[in-house]
Nucleic acid binder design. Structure first.
Length: 278
DNA sequence: AGCTCAACCTGGCTGC
DNA sequence: TGCAGCCAGGTTGAGC
């Protein structure tokens, strides 16, 4: 599920149950995630309070007394707030208890991560996983005046296809595989164009497209994942109205030309070859 | 430094 | 039904 919108919606959903609360227990059901979950996580966390939760790219950073709990949902991770008595489900990996509520990470494919970054190891912004991330799409550094210039500057000289460049998240974070195709469509940019060919006007158009796409998706995510306390956690069946993603062969919603699917960097890309120009 | 590609892991779907 | 093969929202790390 998780691209930036889902992570943002997850953050908003769990915040009321977690912020200001103190950890009373930790259980690791299967710690073999992307990296091993620290074996002593319980020892570290119990007694510590969550000051706040920040989202950085697709990472959730729980500000604790002595450091940060880093959580990433990978491809299939879901964080839900439940009651301690709620039945464990297959693929539940880690749970953190805050008195009456537990936060459970459910992650079938185990690409997610649960890590501890102590304050003793320096600022969280300098953590190896965080340091090289691009700008936050909704930050002031990526505002209307700056965003296009930033993208233009960052793409300069790059030979890589713009789809892969954008997806890499070194210019701007949070644009996953779905919203990457969607944003490029909205900006009228062909995914195979060399990133370095991005003109300033088109960079500005792309910046707007990215923000609009993510903003709409956050709204949609909000309607698809509404009740984090619900013990069955069914996210519902909200169908995202994509313009190109997963629409291979179907008519473009603008010009009716069949949508094409190609593979770039081992990932599917969808686009309209008539609406999107190199 | 930039780029490509394999790898991590499980489940669901398609087609024989 | 069964089974092989392919695909999937992310990201790193090795190797050129």
């Amino acid at each position: 599920m998780p691209e930036l919108p889902e992570v943002e919606v997850t953050k908003q959903g769990i915040e009321p149950y977690v912020q200001g609360k103190r950890v009373t227990a930790v259980k690791i059901y299967d710690g073999r995630l992307r990296w091993p979950v620290p074996k002593n996580l319980e020892q570290i966390l119990v007694g510590q309070q969550v000051a706040l939760i920040k989202r950085r790219g697709k990472y959730l950073l729980f500000r604790m007394d002595d450091g940060h709990l880093i959580v990433h949902l990978g491809m299939t991770g879901v964080l839900r707030v439940l009651k301690p008595s709620d039945e464990l489900k297959k693929h539940d990996r880690v749970e953190i208890t805050f008195g009456k509520h537990v936060l459970r990470l459910h992650d079938p494919r185990k690409f997610g991560a649960v890590l501890w970054a102590s304050d003793e190891d320096g600022e969280i912004e300098k953590h190896p996983l965080i340091a090289k991330l691009g700008l936050e799409p909704f930050s002031d550094d990526f505002n209307e005046a700056k965003a296009g210039k930033h993208l233009h500057q960052h793409a300069k000289g790059r030979q890589i296809a713009i789809k892969q460049w954008l997806l890499a998240g070194q210019a701007v974070v949070g644009v996953g595989n779905i919203y990457c195709s969607e944003s490029l469509f909205s900006a009228g940019i062909h995914p195979e164009m060399a990133a370095g060919k991005l003109s300033l006007p088109r960079a500005e158009k792309l910046a707007i497209a990215i923000k609009e796409t993510l903003k709409k998706a956050i709204k949609a995510g909000g309607s698809s994942l509404k009740d984090f306390v619900n013990s069955d956690g069914d996210p519902g069946h909200f169908m995202l109205q994509t313009k190109v993603y997963d629409r291979a062969g179907l008519p473009c919603r603008v010009c009716k030309t069949p949508i094409r699917q190609i593979v770039q960097g081992q990932r599917s890309t969808y686009f309209c070859h008539k609406c999107q120009k190199k």
